[in-house]
Simulated assay, not measured.
Amino acid sequence: MTARIIDISWEPEQALAEASARLAEGLPVAIPTETVYGLAADATNPAAITRIYETKGRPRFNPLICHMADLAMAERYALFDPLSRRLAESFWPGPLTLVLPLKTDCGIHALATAGLDSVGVRVPKGFAGDLIRRFDRPLAAPSANTSGRISPTSAEHVAEDLGDKLALILDGGQADVGVESTIVKVEGERIRLLRPGGIAAEDIERVARRTVERQASPAPTIEAPGMLASHYAPNASVRLNATAVRPGEVLIRFGGKPVSGADIASAVFDLSASGDLAEAASNLFDMLHAADAMGAGRIAIAAIPDQGLGEAINDRLIRAAAPRDH
C-alpha cells in the first residue's frame, strides 16, 4: 500500500470527503495541524485506535491526545473546572492541550486514554478543526511518525516514514508552530506543566494569574504524551550544548552565533539566524530530519536559550539525546 496524498489547498472539499470516509472505515489518516502532522483516527473506535498504535509502533501505556472541533464539542467528553475553561477560551483553537477528567460513558475508548480516567483535549486550528467538525467525533492524533522518532512537520516527512502503511496523507504544507502542543493539568488552584510546547508557559501564567509548576524529570508516571525519557530521536546520536564541532558531525546552531570548528562540520544549519525562538521551534524538526538524512553519526547542537518557546525546544532536544533502548 502506498499512501494517496491530497493537497488540501487545491482540493479542500475532496480532502475532507476522503478523509471522513477513511476515518469512518476505522483507518488512520495523516493530517496537518499547526503543531506537527498527526496520525488521526476515531477516538471512539477501539479498532481504529489499535491501528494508530500498530502503525506507529507506540507503547499502549502512552495515552493519546483527543482533538475536538471546538470547546462545545470538548464539553461533551470532558469535565471543565473554571480555570481550565479560562485557558481553553484564551488559547483554543491553538497548541494547548488540557488534561481533564473524562465524563462518564462519554464514548472515548479506554485505549485512547491508556486506561486513565482523564483525557488530553485540544482544539486545533485550520483544516484539522474543519475535518473534526465534518466527522463529528473526536480524533485521537499523535504525531504521524514511527514512535520515538523525529516528529513530522511536512507531508513529505510522513510519506518517507509511514507512506507504505497509510491509505491517505493530507498535505497542508509546512507546519506553522513546528513543535507539539503544550500540555497542562489543573489541580485545584495548581497548574502543572506536563509537556512544554507551542505556547510558552509564561503566556499561560499571564492568563491564569498564577505560576505554572514544572514536572519532575524523569516523570514518575506517564500522564500525557511526550513524557517518555527518549523521544523525538533521529537515527544519529545527539550532542547538546556543543561549543565546538568534532569531525564528521552535523552542526545545528542558533542565533547566528559562531561555533568553533564549524568549518569542519558535515553541514551547518541555523534554527534562526536572527535569534527568533518561534522561528527556531518551527524549524527544529525539519532541520533534525535534514541533518539525519545526511547520514552523519552525530548531530551537535549549540545551546538554545531556555525561556519562552526555548523551553519546548530544549525539552525535545533533551529527549532526542537521551539513551535509547535500541
Results as ranks from 00 to 15, higher is better:
A3W: 08
R4G: 12
I8F: 14
I8D: 07
W10V: 13
P12V: 04
P12K: 04
L16I: 14
A17T: 14
A19S: 13
S20L: 07
L23R: 05
E25Q: 15
E25G: 10
P28Y: 04
I31F: 06
G38C: 04
A40Q: 10
N45H: 07
A47H: 02
A48H: 06
I49G: 10
R51W: 02
I52F: 01
Y53K: 13
T55F: 07
N62P: 07
N62I: 13
C66V: 14
H67Q: 03
D70S: 07
L79A: 14
D81A: 13
D81G: 15
S84Y: 01
R86S: 11
W92R: 15
P95N: 02
P95Q: 01
T104V: 09
C106S: 13
G107E: 11
I108T: 08
A110G: 02
L111S: 12
L111F: 08
T113S: 04
T113W: 01
V121M: 13
G126R: 12
R134T: 13
R134V: 15
R137V: 13
R137W: 05
A141T: 06
S147K: 12
T153Q: 01
A155Q: 01
D161Q: 06
L162T: 10
L166I: 14
L168R: 07
I169M: 06
I169Q: 04
Q174E: 14
S181Q: 02
I183F: 02
G188Y: 13
G188R: 12
E189W: 08
R190V: 14
R195Y: 00
G198A: 03
R209C: 03
A216H: 12
A216M: 15
P218Q: 08
P220I: 14
I222V: 13
E223P: 03
P225R: 11
S237N: 11
R239C: 09
L240T: 10
L240G: 08
V245H: 10
V245C: 11
R246C: 05
G248H: 08
E249L: 03
V250Q: 08
G261C: 11
I264N: 04
A265L: 00
S266F: 04
V268H: 00
L271W: 09
E279C: 14
A280T: 04
A280Y: 05
A280I: 10
A281I: 11
S282K: 15
F285V: 05
H289A: 00
A291D: 09
M294K: 14
A296M: 10
G297Q: 15
G297Y: 00
I304T: 00
P305A: 01
D306H: 14
D306F: 05
A312F: 02
R316L: 04
I318L: 14
A321N: 02
